[in-house]
């Protein structure tokens, strides 16, 4: 899987990323020139400015960079986790870690991406602990 989309025509990177996700695939852009990965999806490489960004399957491996518990009343759904995950390819993204209680998510935890069906957003990327969390 190495198809390159034209940077300035056709569906833009946001739409391409969403279409991949809707198809159950987590894809990342990688720059043909500086070889670095880019997230969130962009028209130009945010490292070097090149328009030569190629979609590649993500490793789906990551590490929790920071984590918080958003406190919410039980009747509104209860507390939930928001985390920043550093992907093994380099970029960082916001997500949440599932498969354990929100406060049990710790900085440095190894996690693996999972695509879920979310009532409000359709397909959504979340993460599960790589070990011991039912990944």
């Amino acid at each position: 899987m190495n198809d390159m989309t034209n940077a300035f025509s056709g569906p833009g990177p946001d739409a391409v990323f969403a279409a991949y996700l809707a198809d159950g695939r987590f894809m990342l852009q990688r720059c043909d020139d500086c070889k670095k990965h880019v997230f969130y999806p962009r028209v130009l490489c945010s490292h070097c400015g090149s328009p030569k960004l190629t979609w590649q399957p993500a490793s789906s491996q990551g590490t929790v960079y920071s984590t918080t518990v958003v406190r919410r009343k039980t009747e509104q759904g209860g507390d939930y986790n928001v985390a920043l995950v550093d992907l093994s390819e380099g970029p960082r993204m916001m997500s949440r870690v599932e498969g354990l209680a929100p406060h049990e998510v710790t900085i440095g935890m190894d996690v693996r991406a999972k695509i879920i069906d979310e009532p409000r957003h359709g397909k959504l990327l979340v993460f599960m602990p790589t070990q011991g969390g039912g990944a």
């Binding site: 946001d14 997230f39 969130y40 960079y65 920071s66 984590t67 918080t68 958003v70 939930y80 928001v82 985390a83 920043l84 993204m93 916001m94 997500s95 949440r96 900085i107 440095g108 979310e118 409000r120 957003h121 959504l124």
Partner: peptide
């Protein structure tokens, strides 16, 4: 923000909480 909003961060406190947690760590 398109790539943050689906995770329901509370603006702006969730972001500052993430920075605080990292500083403590």
């Amino acid at each position: 923000q398109t790539y943050e909003a689906p995770y329901d961060p509370r603006h702006p406190i969730t972001s500052y909480a993430l920075a605080t947690a990292r500083h403590m760590h």
